[in-house]
């Protein structure tokens, strides 16, 4: 094992996660990016998706809805618009949000903001996926 590195997730309303981990995969806008210790300095844009990380051999997940990542000096910082640890996700709420978004997309009323509904749906799906 090549060791660990510091993994830090911050959202506008506070720090979500800050710990030494062994491995991280983040949802980059151009595809998933995997980070191992001693990664080269990197700044990346993140999409809506699930961050997976390995903490003392256990796989864990965080759902995020877009943001940025900076890797430097064996330190990974994720700036997320919103971030929720899998164990904190309210599955019922996510399901309700998903159904709401689906309904809005199906009905396609003229006043519906399709792009927003799609994003809302995507966010709900990601949260459900992370909570699994």
């Amino acid at each position: 094992m090549a060791g660990t590195f510091n993994f830090n997730v911050v959202a506008p309303d506070g720090q979500v996660f800050n710990k030494e981990v062994e491995f991280v995969v983040v949802p980059g806008v151009t595809g998933e990016i995997g980070i191992l210790p001693n990664h080269a300095p990197l700044v990346a844009g993140l999409g809506i998706g699930v961050i997976r990380y390995k903490d003392e051999g256990v796989d864990k997940k965080i759902a995020i809805s877009g943001g940025f990542m900076e890797v430097a000096n064996n330190k990974v910082t994720v700036l997320a618009k919103t971030a929720e640890k899998a164990e904190d996700i309210d599955v019922e709420r996510a399901k309700a949000a998903k159904e709401r978004a689906e309904k809005r997309l199906q009905e396609r009323k003229p006043e519906t903001d399709v792009v927003r509904a799609q994003i809302a749906l995507q966010r709900a799906l990601v949260r459900l996926k992370a909570a699994e």
Binding site: P12, G28, V29, T30, I33, A40, P41, L42, V43, A44, G45, G67, F68, A72, L79, K81
Partner: peptide, 23 residues
């Protein structure tokens, strides 16, 4: 250090600047 940017710095700025103002 030299940074790798993904996507390009221009595209990143495009997203980052509004987030910066929001913050």
């Amino acid at each position: 250090g030299e940074y790798i940017f993904d996507p390009s710095p221009e595209q990143l700025l495009e997203q980052l600047l509004p987030s910066y103002i929001e913050s």
